[in-house]
Design a protein around this nucleic acid. Structure first.
Length: 269
DNA sequence: TCCTTATGTACAA
DNA sequence: TGTACCTAAGGAC
């Protein structure tokens, strides 16, 4: 259940456990069998992430293109690998480790050119060194779409999902229904810088934490919180619960088929 | 055992 | 805007 930080972390972990060594490549589930057979026994030479897309490089110009979608999961383990369950789309295994991929939206063998085409369709990724936040602002500043929808549009900015969207808008006191054209350059610069920092920390910790140190329950003299998705957040999935800062009930609404969360008091129009 | 839900995207109408 | 797709967990029966 990934946002961009998960994918970048996976790229690192695939590299750590499988780069520069021969791996067996299989598709126990059967939906990737032909491509797995082509790569079986080959060497993983690189693992690249752009937004929520993961690319595993083999041979000269072959890439496994993985997109986890909403349900995809990757699990690493130490060798010897246990018998795979029948939902494992892709397994890599070597002498020391194995990794299973389940439920991805995409798992396909593609060429260099096809990889480039995927990346060309994506906006800048706060986790990539080559990211250009100006190109995102050019689209945002011309758009009558809400900033909440724009942040989820991977052509505008790549890697932000429903959690980072809700949390970064809260952290900057921005009403999610403001339009892109209404977002000032300075506001965008602050959002981008914040996303870079938050998502880097997300890669490091493999979870999303967005609550500033001065707003933790300990710092505010309140009982500890447990958010059921693993991280510490202000508004995500906290509908009808009191805002940590002002006590107003967090609101929720559907927006582009997703659940949006915000504090109507801290994030005024 | 069934139903709902989920950090996503693509395509049809 | 609705629907389809992929999986697993949790809660209602």
């Amino acid at each position: 259940m990934p946002e961009g930080h998960t994918i970048h972390r996976l790229a690192e972990d695939y590299g750590t456990h499988f780069a520069a060594r021969r791996a067996t490549v299989t598709s126990p589930q059967g939906k990737f069998t032909d491509a797995a057979a082509l790569l079986d026994g080959e060497v993983l030479h690189s693992a690249d992430a752009h937004g929520k897309h993961l690319f595993l490089g083999f041979r000269d110009a072959d890439w496994i293109h993985i997109h986890l979608g909403l349900f995809g999961k990757v699990t690493f383990g130490a060798a010897p690998a246990p018998p795979p369950t029948d939902t494992v789309r892709l397994r890599l295994a070597n002498d020391t480790a194995y990794v299973d991929l389940r439920g991805p939206t995409t798992c396909a063998l593609i060429t260099d050119a096809e990889k480039q085409a995927v990346q060309d369709r994506l906006g800048p990724d706060p986790l990539r060194r080559d990211a250009d936040p100006d190109s995102a602002y050019r689209r945002i500043s011309r758009s009558r779409t809400t900033i909440a929808a724009l942040l989820m549009d991977q052509k505008v900015i790549a890697g932000v999902g429903n959690v980072y969207r809700a949390e970064v808008l809260f952290r900057h006191g921005i009403d999610p229904y403001r339009t892109g054209r209404d977002i000032a350059r300075a506001e965008w610069d602050a959002i981008w810088a914040d996303l870079v920092a938050l998502m880097r920390e997300g890669v490091r910790n493999n979870r999303i934490d967005t609550v500033r140190p001065e707003h933790t329950p300990e710092a505010m003299g309140r009982p500890p919180r447990v958010d059921d998705h693993g991280g510490e957040v202000y508004v995500y999935r906290r509908a009808n619960m009191p805002c940590h800062l002002c006590g107003t009930d967090i609101r929720t609404a559907g927006l582009a088929a997703r659940n949006l969360f915000w504090c109507p008091s801290c994030q005024r129009p």
